[in-house]
Design a binder for these strands. Structure first.
Lengths: 129, 129
DNA sequence: ATAACTGTATTATATGACTGATACACTTTT
DNA sequence: AAAAGTGTATCAGTCATATAATACAGTTAT
């Protein structure tokens, strides 16, 4: 079951969008698999300290996007085929990376300097040479 | 004068925050210099097709942050010392880059793959969505 | 079967973001 | 001095986001 254990509530954007983003990124990384059960709306509401209606909005939109499937009375399940997965992956990777590249460019940062900065911030656990 | 010629109105976040971000990034890149005049609130309102009150909110917050200075009746001016510039630069670079790195990590993208993707997109910023 | 849980729906309230209109005082331009 | 432009302020209204309190019907577990 998707437990939302490592989910952290930010303060930058709407909560329901953060939840949708979390699920999509989980699908891309593979930590969320097809057929997996979602945590119930009430349980997630209690876990995050967020109103049930806000959770419902996120789940409803996920269903409209064809990412989860809900049967009244039972838990909602993830339902994505390989095509959807690949589309979500491509979309998120391009969106996020393009936004970062544009930010760096608008600040006049050269490509090499930007990549070096990203490498630094990544943490670099295994030092090369 | 700061003409906001290359400013593009996005649909992802509050307009007044987009304006503030634009000014800050301009200061970091050097395209906006200390002492420079801001375009008037009414003129920017007309240029962007946005309500004057929204522009005023952005300008007011910029003044509260000590980035611009306003005298009633005259145009507002940018007023930042080198210390502020450096702080803004550091803050924006780390924020934006950290957000991107975290996104890539949450999607299970390896550092090398992420950097390669960024390098690709840096070259052709044509596609979106 | 009963109880507990689940998805779904409704109504109401509060706040932030944005718009629209107007007004006043100050500075710059003519 | 007069006109035009500018910063500042107020009031009202709409829409999105989030909260709160219920209610009902379907599924699962006991």
């Amino acid at each position: 079951m998707i437990s939302f254990e490592d989910f952290i509530l930010e303060d930058n954007g709407p909560i329901y969008l953060q939840i949708i983003r979390y699920v999509k990124r989980g699908i891309v990384s593979g930590s969320i698999a097809n057929g997996e059960e979602m945590i119930s709306r009430r349980a997630l509401s209690a876990l995050l300290g967020v109103n049930p209606n806000t959770i419902q909005k996120a789940y409803h939109l996920l269903e409209e996007e064809g990412i989860i499937r809900s049967r009244s009375g039972a838990k909602s399940c993830v339902e994505v085929d390989e095509g959807q997965k690949e589309e979500i992956r491509r979309s998120l990777l391009v969106q996020d990376t393009l936004a970062w590249v544009q930010a760096m460019r608008q600040m006049g940062v050269e490509k090499e300097a930007a990549l070096r900065l990203a490498e630094d911030i990544w943490g670099d656990p295994k030092e090369e040479r």
